[in-house]
Design a protein around this nucleic acid. Structure first.
Length: 608
RNA sequence: GCCCCGGUAGCUCAGUAGGAUAGAGCAACGGCCUUCUAAGCCGUGGGUCAGGGGUUCGAAUCCUCUCCGGGGCACCA
């Protein structure tokens, strides 16, 4: 290691730095200036690509930030990395925020920040409060985030919960870093599954009327179907009743009777439509749709997951979007007819096989609706479109992208984020679930069991492509083993200290604390200061990478540093200067923990 | 068969666009409460980063092959 004298003061850069909310951009500016001056002297080619080259050090002896710039650019400069590093360091403008610069190892440039820089962070946090950590990285670009979008054929279950928590947090993170976010739920309010729901409701209704019938193998068997049927019966009494024998007349046999369960349920749907007539059938259908959708909305709302728009699939048919999308694909020559169906030649765009747009029976497919929906999204002019799907839909990605390309749209504007399943564990045992039989744990049951805070946090604790083991016992436990309580407790502890202060008849003077920040020289205080200054970087990384787990882990670490500090040092000391400085620091910690938890949709209580 | 995701400490997982000695929490073991909440803190042990080969100054990270686990391959939604 060696110290190198570096350049002339550049007041412009420090003036700029005072307006910055975090330190990393300042150092990037300094490095840029150094590169430019080497370029001006001809020591570096003018087209040298700088890129991202600044990172937090893992080891404090390497300073606060390290840059591998010299190693990256040494080929272009045709010099050894360490020689280039020395030239770069010599060309670095001076800054109040930087106390020392070192060259180390193969050619790392290590930056040691001055205590002033960290003290400025505390001031920033206390001034900006809830705004600390927000940025304008996204520059107001618009992004649409579609998530959950579960079929309204039953209540949300724990699998949807992960998509809900993940999607909501990704959306909030993007908003925090300056994107204009539109949150949307795509309501599959058309199609065969909804017909099956309507038929299931109707059959349960007939049962309530006193008809004897055997419920179809492929019908929806959940209790909520009985509830909807009961509403239907309250409203219409026996007015919609037809003899079971009439309803089942001419319907193909069900599976248990050696028939085809699909043909059986479709046959029942057709009978229901015929016997009830268009209007009354639609009434049954809409009663099912509306009550389930209302249930889903309430569930998500209670979970702290809010939407700007509930987009109806049916609207795509009624306003001819589907027809228009299909027509555009036909006009551009990407379709063909085969076996009575209209096919989209998605294999031209890398899909495994071609896909049907319009079935032999004249009905357009779900895929056709989805093309129209994505066409609609892009027509609305978003800069980016994000779809969050369950991992079981991954095979669907290539064909949607293929369709967008065939339409002449920019498929790269679409990001599809796939969320893996969550497996629940209770008492060390896997909780068995089966959607078919209607035996699944609902999101509501989960929320009631472990609480919203734990559920939100646990769902985003793992990166989305990881299969997740959700430990219900841990989520419920009120101990330090539970990261949610651990973090919330740190927040509450600060509030508690301030209450103690008041009880002792003392007051906290922020300005005095700010003037005494140089008294914070303990190793624990230093560690806390570093973490607090990292927060904006963490939010940006988490937002840009769609990785809420980064924030969850950061908060756990920050809470740990706070608890460690709490145990090692008394805050409410007699020395007023030191006391106020410490109060500034821990209040800043409370603010950052609170800001982070809010982004994750978790509450930050002042007492527990 | 083809495609996607994963394989890091006994368990659950991080590892920030290849970087410096691979980390955390549980679990195990040993300590710390007359003092701001012990819902907390400190210490100890623990690793063939699934395995082989390659790319380069440098690989848990990139390429390739093999093995293991999960998921997907509809004129369903």
């Amino acid at each position: 290691m060696e110290d190198v004298e570096y350049g002339t003061p550049a007041r412009i850069i420090d003036a700029f730095a005072r307006n910055l909310k975090s330190m990393k951009p300042l150092l990037s500016q300094l490095l840029c200036a150094a590169v430019q001056s080497l370029q001006a002297r001809g020591d570096l080619p003018a087209d040298a690509d700088i890129g991202v080259n600044l990172e937090r050090t893992r080891d404090r002896s390497h300073g606060d930030f390290a840059s591998n710039l010299a190693m990256v650019l040494c080929k272009a400069a045709r010099t050894k990395p360490r020689e280039l590093a020395e030239k770069l360091v010599a060309a670095l403008p001076a800054s109040e925020q930087v106390s020392r610069v070192e060259i180390a190892g193969p050619g790392f440039i290590n930056f040691f920040l001055s205590p002033t820089a960290y003290h400025a962070t505390v001031d920033h946090i206390l001034e900006q409060q809830a705004a600390y950590g927000r940025s304008d990285l996204g520059q107001g670009k618009s992004v649409q985030v579609e998530f959950v979008s579960a079929n309204p054929t039953g209540p949300l279950h724990v699998g949807h919960g992960r998509g809900a928590a993940y999607g909501a947090t990704v959306a909030d993170l993007l908003e925090a870093v300056g994107y204009k976010v539109h949150r949307e739920y795509y309501v599959n309010d058309a199609g065969r599954q909804m017909d099956i729901l309507a038929t299931s409701v109707y059959l349960r209704y007939l049962d309530l009327c006193g008809e004897q019938l055997s419920f179809p193998a492929n019908g929806y068997k959940g209790d909520y179907v009985w509830d909807i049927a009961a509403s239907l019966h309250r409203k219409h009494a026996d007015a919609l009743r037809h003899p079971a024998a009439t309803v089942f007349e001419g319907v193909p046999a069900d599976e248990p009777a050696g028939g085809d369960k699909e043909a059986h349920i479709d046959g029942l749907t057709n009978r229901a439509k015929k016997l009830l007539g268009e209007t009354r059938y639609r009434e049954v259908f809409d009663l099912g749709l509306d009550s389930i959708l209302e249930n889903i909305r309430r569930d998500l709302e209670e979970f702290g997951v809010h939407y700007d728009e509930w987009f109806s699939e049916r609207s795509l048919t009624s306003n001819d979007s589907v027809q228009r999308a299909i027509q555009r694909l036909r006009d551009s020559g990407h379709t063909y007819k085969d076996k009575g169906a209209l096919w989209f030649r998605s294999t031209d765009y890398g899909d495994e096989k071609d896909r049907v747009l319009v079935r032999e029976n004249g009905q357009s497919t779900y895929f056709a609706s989805d093309i129209a929906y994505h066409m609609n999204k892009l027509e609305r002019g978003y800069d980016r479109v994000i779809d969050i799907w369950g991992a079981d839909h991954h095979g669907y990605v290539p064909r949607v992208k293929a369709a967008l390309e065939a339409l002449g749209d920019d498929a790269d504007k679409l990001d599809v984020l796939l969320v893996q399943f969550a497996i629940l564990y209770r008492g060390g045992e896997k909780v068995q679930m089966s959607t078919r039989s209607g035996e699944f744990v609902t999101l509501r049951e989960l929320r009631h069991e472990v609480g919203n805070d734990a559920a939100r946090f646990f769902y985003v604790m793992r990166k989305c492509e990881q299969h997740m083991d959700f430990d219900l016992d841990l989520a419920k436990s009120q101990s330090s083993d539970n990261p949610v309580y651990y973090i919330q407790y740190a927040h509450a502890r600060v509030a508690s200290v301030l209450r103690q202060l008041a009880e002792k008849g003392l007051t906290w003077e922020r300005a005095n604390g700010a003037a005494n920040l140089h008294r914070l020289t303990e190793a624990h205080e230093d560690a806390l200061l570093v973490s607090l200054s990292r927060y904006p970087e963490v939010v940006e990384t988490a937002a840009v990478g769609h990785e809420p787990h980064q924030l969850a882990h950061f908060l756990r670490d920050l809470a740990n540093e706070f608890h460690t500090y709490y145990n090692a040092h008394q805050f409410l000391v007699d020395d007023k200067g030191l006391r106020d400085a410490r109060l500034n620091l821990i209040q800043a910690a409370r603010q950052v923990i609170g800001n982070g938890l809010r982004l994750l949709g978790v509450s930050a209580p002042d007492s527990m």
